[in-house]
Design a protein around this nucleic acid. Structure first.
Lengths: 253, 253
DNA sequence: AGCTGCTGTTTCACACAGGGAAACAAACGA
DNA sequence: TCGTTTGTTTCCCTGTGTGAAACAGCAGCT
């Protein structure tokens, strides 16, 4: 979708903002310039404007910039994550405690799945995604679990033209992916066999609202060595139960 | 600080974004135009740009716009709220359960205090601020508790030129406020006697980091009728304890 | 001190892109 | 069916965003 209604200053200023978010630390003007590749005069003006709106904070002593509280505040008004999170948390903890593996909660956004809650395994070797982080839908169990329950004509909108390989195991054929998604529907859970990250296996089940529409998914992800085939049956049942419980809670309101 | 480096398009686009956040629902193009008072052509372009960056989502069926996930995602990279919140939660719950009154966690941002966590009373008549909401520093217990522990030369930076009355009880004199803040330092807690909201009393104590610098505050807020003078002593000790416990946890890492 | 890199800030003139009126299209409701 | 309201597109003009360059302030060197 080549959009010719893009307002350059706005677009670039948002890039600056995003840059400040990606780096999880304060940045100097020149560092930002380097990253976004925009002349310092321009970046300077953007930062002044962003500061004026509270989207960025400027530390006068150190002359460093960082994301402002107003962004967090605005983020609180994004409905989806908040509501589901609260309901899902206890169920997710229970699942983590049962297997002592990392449990993720994710929702779809465009072509990607966003991690909106993560309950980490207590082991030292563990899967560890970043809260608010993103991964492709087609290479993750979370993504496939949600997508599978969407109507088939919506699938293309959530998939890129070309499926890029994340690992040697990533499914690259659209036809095969289609079949996988149909299988997910039947079995009620999705599987990621080192397709997104080498050495990581992941099982996910969809969470549905009271209309049966998929709104999110929970997943259990572990190093492949700790998730051998013989464990899959047991784990998939547990993940499905967790998802069903959350769906249940979601419906009761 | 009259800033002449404001980039108009950026500034206005952020207003549009903020407008979408303030209303906690999806908005149509024309509604946004009405609110921000910018011609529809312009708002249209801003929305297109915001969408292109994922800051806004456009529902093609209903033609409504709402805040995008990316904002929430960016908000997650604002450090302050996140870390303190997790540590404070259990302590806050305990305090709520003891008095069955609303417990707030807030930090300073410019001239205002921002609510970063709220544990609500279970009573039907209760104080209920909005997560991410804001109130003046000088009229709230939360604000005064944090400000008091900052060095005195920083106080003016957090106070407006003119103290506007929020209620009939709001402290209007800078001199009196100064004395109040000095008192807060001695007693270790701040009090809001219907100064921010008619009929609401509030007790707050500061949370400090390992260097003793104030980073946030917890407060217990209740209808004045349920917080008579004779309860103050007991409540203030409890709030101070809660704050101390959170400070303790904060130091242990 | 003086010099030399580095920051962030300010100035200035120019092109070009953002702005908004108006025209258009599409979806309603009467 | 026609009016009304919505979102989209076109178009021309002007005002403003832009970035080079000049400036200033600082730190680390020799």
């Amino acid at each position: 979708m080549p959009n010719n209604y893009i307002v350059q200053p706005v677009y670039k200023a948002l890039q600056v903002l995003r840059c400040l978010g990606d780096e999880r630390r304060e940045l100097a003007l020149s560092e930002i310039c380097y990253r976004v590749e925009i002349p310092k005069t321009t970046v300077f003006r953007y930062l002044q404007t962003l500061c004026a709106c509270g989207f960025v904070t400027h530390d006068f002593d150190t002359d460093l910039y960082r994301i402002g509280l107003r962004v967090w505040e605005l983020g609180q008004s994004v409905h989806e994550p908040i509501r589901i999170r609260d309901l899902a948390l206890p169920e997710m903890r229970a699942l983590r405690d049962r297997f002592n593996e990392t449990v993720n909660l994710g929702i779809l956004d465009g072509l990607e799945v966003v991690y909106i809650e993560i309950i980490e395994s207590r082991r030292s070797l563990r899967m560890q995604a970043q809260l608010g982080g993103r991964d492709p839908i087609y290479s993750t169990a979370l993504g496939k679990a949600v997508l599978a329950l969407k109507s088939e004509d919506q699938w293309p909108a959530h998939l890129p033209k070309d499926l890029a390989p994340r690992t040697g195991h990533t499914v690259m054929s659209t036809a095969k992916l289609r079949q996988t998604l149909l299988d997910v529907r039947e079995r009620g859970f999705a599987f990621d066999d080192e397709e997104n990250e080498e050495g990581a296996r992941c099982i996910a089940a969809p969470i549905v609202n009271h209309l049966g529409q998929p709104v999110a998914a929970v997943s259990l992800s572990a190093p492949a060595s700790r998730m051998p085939d013989r464990l899959l049956a047991k784990a998939s049942v547990a993940v499905k139960e967790t998802a069903a419980n959350i769906s249940q809670r979601l419906a009761n309101r």
